[in-house]
Nucleic acid binder design. Sequence first.
DNA 1: GTGGTCTAGACCACG
DNA 2: GTGGTCTAGACCACC
Lengths: 127, 127, 127, 127
Amino acid sequence: MIIKLDMNSSIPIYIQLRNQIVMGIGKGDLKLGEQLPTVRQMAEDIGINQMTVNKAYGILKFEGYIEIDRRHGAKIALIQKKTDNFKEKMEEELQLLMTEASLKGYDKSDILRICRTVINGVNISLA
Amino acid sequence: MIIKLDMNSSIPIYIQLRNQIVMGIGKGDLKLGEQLPTVRQMAEDIGINQMTVNKAYGILKFEGYIEIDRRHGAKIALIQKKTDNFKEKMEEELQLLMTEASLKGYDKSDILRICRTVINGVNISLA
Amino acid sequence: MIIKLDMNSSIPIYIQLRNQIVMGIGKGDLKLGEQLPTVRQMAEDIGINQMTVNKAYGILKFEGYIEIDRRHGAKIALIQKKTDNFKEKMEEELQLLMTEASLKGYDKSDILRICRTVINGVNISLA
Amino acid sequence: MIIKLDMNSSIPIYIQLRNQIVMGIGKGDLKLGEQLPTVRQMAEDIGINQMTVNKAYGILKFEGYIEIDRRHGAKIALIQKKTDNFKEKMEEELQLLMTEASLKGYDKSDILRICRTVINGVNISLA
DNA sequence: GTGGTCTAGACCACG
DNA sequence: GTGGTCTAGACCACC
């Protein structure tokens, strides 16, 4: 799988990496249960420091997206830990995004169409 | 209009302020053409540094959400400057959000319903 | 007796195993003098490495919870070796726990009640 | 306030620091609302790296024990964030501790007395 | 082999 | 001046 990082972005690298991995799951590039590269390997592959990868993996583990086993490294989790206030956060982010889109001149039906396309593109699959 | 800031958040205050203002437009709390409080006033009202408000206003102006008139201060812009890569950015953010939602166990139709509700809640109005 | 291990935990497996065995004694699942499975057997039963079980047994032996007889394998010790600084360690851990509980909003009497319940649940018995 | 760290312990320094701060609150050395030393200051004071302090503060923030404000650094939080499974975790730790104490030869009433003493020693106070 | 921790030193974003 | 991030390089605990 390909990890795209923008070194000039104000978004920290470990967050970008975290996002890329989550999106990798959504795109089907990473399958549930699949092994993730080791911390060292990933760091080398994308040319960043080991600790930065470590931090990203730590967050993903905390969020329930991956499981880290001392013996076998990290793999994509099968079951998601429930988060209490996820829906709230999602609605807030959506509202911001949709307001921006509306003000940029997008029609409500346009926006909805884009949402539908994106959702249908999400393709979570088993290893 | 009420500005909600979380001093404990990792999101910079000037970004939070920028977001709150954009969402204020979406909610109809701020109408197109409406006058915004002066930098000094806003800073005092919400208890933050003038520099911070200034930075938020600067971004909003750059993004085309407000116009700054030397004589009358800032007001919500009527016309939105088109941004080339907005759609791309929106799709990326949406994809991340929808993947997260899917993995949290939300059904595609659930997500779409939430999108629809949020979009319909957006209510941009003239002063 | 059932051993619960969390491969995802930050607590090392050999410590988890050690703790589970000690708690097994406290619950009465393991009786004083009772035979423990061999290292090989235990490792196979719970699906971990023999080295790991060996390490746990070694600690338990060092702490005086089990006795290892070359002929008969390991069994739960009848007499406990006194440890000088145990009380100190216990008080430290208790203090941390009680402070956490207080800050989480638990009343002192609540906490004491929980302590009493837990203590009364401890039921060490002979084989 | 005095921070005691054991550099030879297997418990990570950032966890030890986190524990010491929580206990500092329990002992009344740190009052609710009180300012904590800056990351740099604390690191220098106790002779460890800035990032290690940062990690400890990050955990304390996440757990709700402190608030970190970009403007004023860290201070002891007034309100504790509720944790779902705290009671469960506390009971488990208590059970282990009490079993150990029982096996070390402590009487149930002895243990209860120690608990009572420790609880009564907890003294959370306002700045 | 794996992840986890720690350090020294640097730079940046924020307010 | 504050916390936050990142790096290079080292060492450790675990399995």
